[in-house]
């Protein structure tokens, strides 16, 4: 009896939802059309990420990467977006697969750096710094340099700390970040697929692709 009810309900749902589904299916086509072109696909992923839909953005990029496996933009963004969803190990592994000659050493370093520190949600543009009135002389207390402004000693004036991420690492260096405490991510360990990847013949792009 219960199964009958469930089946009936599902049938009704399916029928009632048909028009909406048709509309949504058209929307799905529109999304997949976007990724039939590398540039529009990457732009779509950027738009999705811009509104926080990172899983959707990753899916979009994977469509782009499937159709355009040589897409540097898609692969860079895919790695960084993995880190954005806190899969830093996955992101760093993808970065470790990137050839400096193809992706640019600075891009790779930048991506690795972004993956190695907690992401800070973008905030509204900060207002232009306004010069604070000089403090009252009586409040000026001579402090040892090492204790001023959070103890930073750089030889230059440092701004007052502005809401740093609560768990931001003191310093981020390639290869020293750890995932969930126990497993250190090695940027230098050669992946197993390197040899197979390097031994692959240039891909025959003449066949197979359907879209």
């Amino acid at each position: 009896m219960r199964n009958i009810h469930i089946a009936a309900c599902l049938s009704v749902i399916a029928m009632l939802s048909a028009p909406a589904s048709a509309q949504s299916l058209a929307e799905l086509d529109r999304l997949s059309d976007l990724t039939a072109n590398e540039e529009t696909g990457v732009a779509a992923a950027q738009e999705q990420a811009g509104r926080g839909a990172y899983l959707e953005a990753l899916s979009t990029l994977e469509r782009v990467m499937a159709a355009f496996p040589e897409s540097v933009s898609a692969r860079l963004l895919h790695a960084v977006y993995l880190c954005r969803i806190d899969d830093r190990q996955g992101g760093l592994v993808e970065i470790s697969q990137m050839d400096e000659d193809l992706f640019g050493a600075a891009n790779i370093a930048d991506a690795r750096d972004r993956c190695s520190r907690p992401y800070v949600e973008p905030q509204a543009p900060a207002p232009a710094p306004v010069a604070r009135p000089d403090p009252e002389p009586i409040e000026t207390v001579a402090l040892p340099p090492s204790t001023a402004a959070g103890g930073t000693v750089s030889g230059k004036e440092q701004p007052a700390p502005v809401a740093p991420p609560p768990d931001a690492p003191a310093a981020t260096t390639a290869g020293t970040n750890s995932i969930s405490g126990s497993n250190a991510i090695s940027d230098t360990a050669p992946p197993r697929s390197s040899s197979s990847s390097s031994s692959q013949q240039p891909e025959d792009t003449s066949g197979g692709e359907k879209d």
Partner: peptide, 8 residues
């Protein structure tokens, strides 16, 4: 590729 040379 992208991980060690070769490829398209």
């Amino acid at each position: 590729g992208g991980g060690g040379g070769g490829g398209i």
